[in-house]
């Protein structure tokens, strides 16, 4: 079952990369989210999968009474999800703002920072 998940992670990553390489800003944004999900699943799967047993110690016990899911990757992923969401919102608003003020949603036409005909640096001190 691990290998099925591994293959699924590959699908997430492949689609994420493919969308990130498109020049449409919205598609890149979708790609970013999917890539993020793929990486979360990657960490999750790499920490081994355990069916249905949450890493919670039953009340009254000092130790879990049996094998539980690996808590460490879960802690890593939990914050990654929230930060990923914050990042996603930021990029979305950035894309929106760029569309408003540059009237461009294709990266080919967004050349404010690196203009096409940038002059040579001046030859002086």
């Amino acid at each position: 079952m691990d290998y099925v998940l591994a293959a699924l992670v590959g699908c997430f990553v492949a689609l994420g990369v493919y969308l990130l390489l498109s020049r449409s800003v919205i598609r890149m944004l979708l790609g970013m989210t999917i890539l993020g999900n793929g990486v979360n699943l990657l960490i999750f799967t790499a920490g081994r999968l355990t069916r249905e047993i949450a890493p919670i110690v039953p009340p009254g016990l000092e130790q879990p009474d049996g094998p539980i899911a690996n808590p460490l990757p879960q802690a890593l992923i939990l914050t990654a999800i929230v930060i990923g969401f914050a990042m996603f919102s930021f990029l979305l608003v950035l894309a929106f703002r760029a569309y408003q003020s540059l009237d461009a949603d294709n990266t080919d036409t967004m050349r404010v920072a690196e203009p096409v005909d940038e002059p040579n640096p001046p030859l002086s001190y």
Binding site: A54, I56, P59, L78, T79, I81, V82
Partner: peptide, 12 residues
């Protein structure tokens, strides 16, 4: 702290 939940989920 003892059951599923926490600040992240609650905040969301």
């Amino acid at each position: 702290h003892n059951e599923p939940g926490g600040g992240f989920i609650g905040g969301l």
